[in-house]
Write a protein that binds this DNA or RNA. Structure first.
Length: 204
DNA sequence: TAGGTCAACGAGCCGG
DNA sequence: CCGGCTCGTTGACCTA
């Protein structure tokens, strides 16, 4: 995988920007038809793209080299572009510096990489999505672990409480050391036991 | 061949 | 209104 870890600094449960509502059905209506062998039907946008892409249809299934694979669209519908190692590395470096680009930076990067500004834009969009996905996964793991710790702690405290009740603590015992981590103290006014959690707070 | 990856896209939201 | 963003999805390609 890519080294996304450096982008993940802490718990940030991203819930997205606005109240985004999925719209599956409408999306399918407008999807370009998968062409496969119908290679004479150009999708309008890709027709435009192909103007800048020299395609050798005989080589469509070959692994493209580092120098040519920015131009590997075919003569029909969407053909998957693979960015070269150099292009990916440069985009990655740029992303480390800033996860969003202004139009000037975008165009400059596109020129530098021999890509279209739109391609750079899409790459950054997808890259942010991947980062967010990874962060969500990290957050999920963190919360899972935290929840487990709390459950353990809860179980332990319940057990201690049971033990305490079994001991029938008298008012003369003002301070009882229950374990290494928990200290119970007697409230002078209400004569009830309370837990000192100073030591607990420091733990995780 | 099933499942994963990723470039690309459309829809909808938001701020200027 | 427009540009830029996120989200959800598609489809080509890769690989175990």
């Amino acid at each position: 995988m890519e080294n996304d870890e450096e982008c993940i600094t802490g718990l940030s449960l991203g819930l997205g920007m606005g109240g985004h509502v999925p719209k599956k059905d409408k999306q399918k209506e407008n999807k370009p038809v998968a062409c496969l062998d119908l290679s004479f039907q150009l999708c309008p946008k890709e027709e435009a793209m192909n103007e800048n892409h020299n395609i050798d249809s005989d080589n469509l299934n070959e692994k493209s080299t580092d120098s040519d694979n920015s131009n590997n669209n075919n003569n029909g519908c969407r053909k998957k572009l693979r960015l070269s190692k150099e292009q990916s590395a440069m985009l990655e470096n740029s992303f480390k510096l800033h996860s969003t680009l202004n139009p000037v930076q975008k165009q400059a990067l596109a020129d530098q990489l021999n890509l279209k500004a739109r391609q750079v834009e899409v790459w950054f969009q997808n890259r942010r999505a991947r980062t967010k996905l990874k962060q969500t996964e990290v957050d999920r793991e963190f919360l899972k672990k935290h929840c487990q710790n709390l459950s353990d702690e809860n179980r332990r405290l319940k057990r201690e409480l049971q033990e305490l009740r079994a001991l029938k603590v008298g008012p003369s015992q003002l301070c009882i050391q229950l374990s290494k981590t928990t200290t119970l103290t007697m409230c002078s006014s209400c004569q009830k036991l309370g837990k000192s959690n100073i030591e607990l707070e420091g733990r995780n």
